[in-house]
């Protein structure tokens, strides 16, 4: 039996008095595309930061592809590709150098140029990332996450800074990686862009996973019609009280 791609059990993170995520129980099966949605400040990045060992939990446990994400980092990250949120690239290093860092550390045999072509950066291979626009940096990070054909692809707000072509590119990449057999876990606060690519959706709100399931199932749960969007579902579940977080969303 293959372990879930991601499994959290009562996972919590507090910063002083502030509860960032509260006893999160979530399971992402291998092979699925899971959209991790919610407004800014809901705890999506905190969850991903925990799963990636950027930060340590206050309590609770998690498994990533069956590995302990905090004590078995090498084995775990060997099989995970991450496209982080809120990052800068290394300004003096070329796009190719960025990819070589990941390829050589993962001991993969990818061709940097091929990966950069795949994300539309074929003509920027030797350019230093300091010259890149935000969208190009996002594409570069996406290419880095694809190195070594990871079993689990974690994309944290992958649509940030992208134009419509970039958004379409991310969707294509998600589909292709899913086709290959990879699990894709991505977060987004833009609720409208995700219904097309996700098998399942989880909505995080104020540190809690308030609902989880396929889009039709969520519509049923909320008693909504079959053309209801993720936004409609979200508004129904949060009773319109999203206005408190709307301002920074």
């Amino acid at each position: 039996m293959t372990p879930p791609a991601i499994e959290t059990d009562e996972l919590s993170k507090q910063y002083g008095e502030t509860v960032a995520i509260d006893a999160l129980n979530m399971t992402v099966e291998q092979g699925e595309v899971y959209g991790f949605l919610g407004p800014n400040g809901a705890g999506k990045s905190t969850t991903i930061n925990l799963l990636m060992d950027y930060i340590k939990p206050t309590s609770g446990t998690a498994r990533v592809l069956g590995h302990d994400p905090w004590n078995d980092v090498v084995a775990c990250h060997q099989r995970v590709g991450i496209c982080p949120d809120r990052f800068e690239t290394y300004e003096s290093l070329s796009a190719r150098r960025h990819l070589e860092l990941v390829i050589d550390t993962k001991r993969a045999d990818d061709d940097p140029r091929a990966l950069l072509e795949r994300v539309g950066l074929a003509d920027a291979v030797e350019r230093p990332a300091g010259e890149f626009s935000q969208g190009m940096e996002q594409r570069l990070a996406l290419a880095m996450s694809l190195v070594g054909a990871p079993d689990l692809l974690i994309l944290d707000e992958p649509f940030t800074g992208l134009d419509p072509h970039g958004v379409a590119l991310v969707r294509d990449v998600v589909e292709a990686e899913s086709e290959r057999g990879a699990t894709v876990f991505f977060s987004s606060h833009v609720l409208g862009q995700v219904d097309l690519v996700c098998d399942r959706i989880g909505i995080l709100y104020e540190g809690d996973l308030i609902v989880e399931g396929t889009l039709p199932a969520l519509r049923d749960t909320c008693d909504l019609s079959s053309d209801a969007t993720v936004e409609d579902i979200f508004m129904t579940l949060t009773d319109g009280s999203a206005s408190t977080t709307e301002r920074d969303a």
């Binding site: 990636m52 060992d53 950027y54 980092v73 090498v74 084995a75 775990c76 990250h77 060997q78 995970v80 991450i82 982080p84 809120r86 990052f87 800068e88 690239t89 290394y90 960025h98 860092l101 990941v102 550390t105 993962k106 990070a141 880095m144």
Partner: peptide
């Protein structure tokens, strides 16, 4: 501060 450490921490490396 810049967040690029997320790339290094995301690699199969211990701290």
């Amino acid at each position: 501060t810049s967040g690029s450490l997320k790339f290094l921490l995301g690699l199969p490396l211990t701290r």
